Simulated scan of single mutants.
Amino acid sequence: MDNRIEEIAAQIKILEDELMLELRKKQDEFFYTLEDKKVKFQENVIKEGRSKIISSIRYLSSFPVLAVFTIPFIWSMMLPALLVDIFVTIYQSVCFPIYKIPKVKRSDYVIMDRYNLFYLDRVEKINCWYCEYFNGVIAYTREIAARTEQFWCPIKHSRTQKEMHSRYEKFFDFGDYASYRRELEKRRADFKDLEEQTTEVI
């Protein structure tokens, strides 16, 4: 059973790599290149995109009035997001070296690029900045939590989760006390796949 799970996990990884390859092909379709992690569009594309920008008032008026009134509630969530970002970064900086867990690279999750798109008006840019930051912080935090969970309590749930985090396949099956007691030290230190990824990037 464990071998089959590993096979499925390997297949998922292959599909993820294929997906990334297809997404990179979109660069050609939409006339941009990546140079030193900076996006560069062709000038004629920028010119055409800017000509289609709508005013912020027109953009906001496309939403129901009640939706516009929820904006203060949306932005009130920025403070907890900032606090989480700061605290999880401090947490992994202090604890991960002690646990011998590879640190999560924040820039792999918090990617701030959409808010600079040339075809967005000011409000759309602000919205994009908020969403990419907030969702990036959540993804970054989840990965830190996943690695922490693998170290402290790598046991799967009895019920199927709607979405599993990146370390879940390393966990023990629910109720498998024999493997848990026999292999706990080995599993909680099994971060070789992350070290290999770091080596490949370098």
Rank of each mutant, 00 (worst) to 15 (best):
D2T: 10
N3G: 08
I5M: 09
I8D: 00
A10C: 04
F31R: 06
K40S: 11
K40Y: 13
Q42L: 11
N44E: 09
I46Y: 01
I46V: 14
K47I: 10
I53S: 04
I54A: 04
I54E: 12
F63D: 03
V68M: 05
F73C: 05
W75C: 05
S76C: 05
L83H: 04
I86W: 14
V88W: 09
Y91G: 04
Q92F: 03
Q92K: 00
C95I: 14
K100C: 05
V104I: 06
R106Y: 02
D108S: 05
Y109K: 08
I111Q: 09
D113Y: 09
R114M: 06
N116K: 14
N116M: 14
L117A: 15
V123F: 14
K125H: 05
K125C: 12
K125M: 14
W129I: 06
F134M: 10
G136D: 00
T141F: 10
E143Y: 04
E143F: 07
A146Q: 07
R147C: 02
R147A: 04
R147S: 03
F151E: 03
C153M: 15
K156M: 04
K156Y: 02
R159E: 15
R159G: 07
Q161F: 06
K162A: 11
H165Q: 07
Y168N: 03
E169T: 11
F171H: 00
F171T: 00
F172E: 02
F172M: 00
D173Q: 08
L184P: 07
K186C: 03
A189I: 00
K192I: 09
D193I: 10
L194F: 09
T198P: 01
V201Y: 07
